[in-house]
Design a binder for these strands. Structure first.
Lengths: 256, 256
DNA sequence: TAAGATTTGTTCGTATGTATC
DNA sequence: GGATACATACGAACAAATCTT
């Protein structure tokens, strides 16, 4: 007869700090804590969960690494609920993507549909200050590039334009993803020598797109913004795939 | 005259374990480690980074929480590079979204553009086994719902259809996002009593969409798949916004 | 400026658990 | 079953940061 199933050949049970971290997380959720709310101090948590100081500390480190809390020393210090920064969220996302072996095509399949939609949603909703900020980013690559190095720098700067745009999006999830992609492409560009031969004609076209886009955003024309961004993405994709079909790896950035 | 800027009023410097975790991460990246590669034991890490056991342990815990490594005890045990699970990635994403206060409109702005694109990319690329799996999910809600409870259960099951579809996507980043949204909407549905009055007519329409979609996927018609999914999303959005314009919060799930 | 109180941060020694041989 | 190698956990002491008076 088959033996009674013991607790072996089961999923390797998680370590105690991980379980404690989840308990704290669940507890935070149940209390519906808001950002900057204070959690109990180490001493109280040690008592509440009957764990040693070290274990409690590891648990809070886990939550800190996930961007859920931050800690301060001193009187009035302690552990506080935190709102995850976009930067940390991007870093966490890239940890996931690191092993997934994305291709340029995968990335642009997303950009092609997301960025036009985002641009349309932004039309007429940006302040003059925000538009000016976008224009000042564009200044960095107004003049045509002469060398491959300049070309690369300009490419990174133009991705900054998209990241800024993503930051301004009212849809935070959309902003996160678009911003993540822009960051990833920047890192990739810096890391590898994409865009070897300068191509002034195509570049000028890309620049014109961005200028037209700003105009459509300022005058509040969603459909124009959508159309312009879609065309912009199409040419960018051609440019990218012509140059390199490289697999997108190793752009993982340390979390701040 | 202004005083020399000391190290005050700067960003609160990160705790040592966090910095060590980043150092290890960077070091892993430089070495180009692959999944299941083994990292040095605690003793060696203590020596390499000149840190005590406790600090190294906290750092390891951080990496584990981020899904980058897992540890095993015993001889031949130690710390190993891990590939983050989709589930953990989704949990990390929801930690970010938790405080962002997304609306149903935000969510559907993404679904509207992503899901049709994903469906189109899948047309003709699914095995008969995969198609059968999708159809078996659909069986769970073939009969019209009689009670609000049934309606809710069916809604969750229909979101399972989208999550499965996302899993099958060759574009892992797209799959992650679509899967994340489906999970989030499921949690929201379970948590809150969305969909109060059963609406057989609209429901039947949604079911027909999914049936047509399967057909388009099987016969390899990308544009038909795109069109069907787009229509499906449009009706789903109407249904959702009619019922509730609730802000999307508190669907954070504990990480496995 | 300085002292003291409060809270987290760090280290070390030791003991225990667990998987492999 | 025992030895071994490794992570896991605890407790106590001390260090550092930061606020208040």
């Amino acid at each position: 007869m088959p033996p009674v199933t013991t607790r072996s050949n089961r999923e390797p049970r998680q370590s105690r700090p991980v379980r404690v971290a989840e308990a704290i997380k669940t507890w935070m959720m149940e209390l519906g804590l808001h950002a900057d709310d204070r959690l109990p101090g180490e001493a109280e948590l040690m008592a509440r969960f009957s764990m040693s100081k070290g274990t409690i500390r590891e648990a809070t480190r886990i939550l800190e690494a996930q961007g859920l809390v931050r800690t301060r020393t001193g009187p009035g210090g302690g552990t506080f609920v935190a709102q995850m920064s976009d930067e940390r969220a991007r870093a966490l996302l890239s940890n996931y993507v690191y092993f997934q072996g994305l291709t340029i095509q995968d990335i642009y399949q997303l950009r092609r549909v997301l960025e036009p939609e985002m641009a349309a949603g932004l039309a007429g909703h940006l302040s003059e200050a925000q538009l000016a900020e976008l224009e000042s980013v564009m200044d960095a690559y107004a003049a045509p590039a002469q060398t491959p190095d300049q070309e690369r720098a300009q490419h990174v700067a133009s991705l900054e334009f998209h990241r800024k745009l993503a930051e301004m999006s009212g849809n935070r999830l959309m902003g996160l993803i678009v911003g993540f992609i822009a960051t990833a492409l920047s890192d990739l560009t810096v890391y590898r020598q994409l865009y070897d031969p300068p191509n002034p004609a195509l570049w000028e076209r890309g620049l014109a797109y961005q200028r037209d886009l700003i105009d459509a955003l300022r005058t509040g024309q969603p459909e124009a913004a959508r159309r312009i961004m879609a065309a912009h993405m199409a040419t960018a994709e051609t440019l990218m795939t012509q140059q390199q079909a490289e697999v997108l790896r190793r752009f993982m950035a340390p979390a701040p």
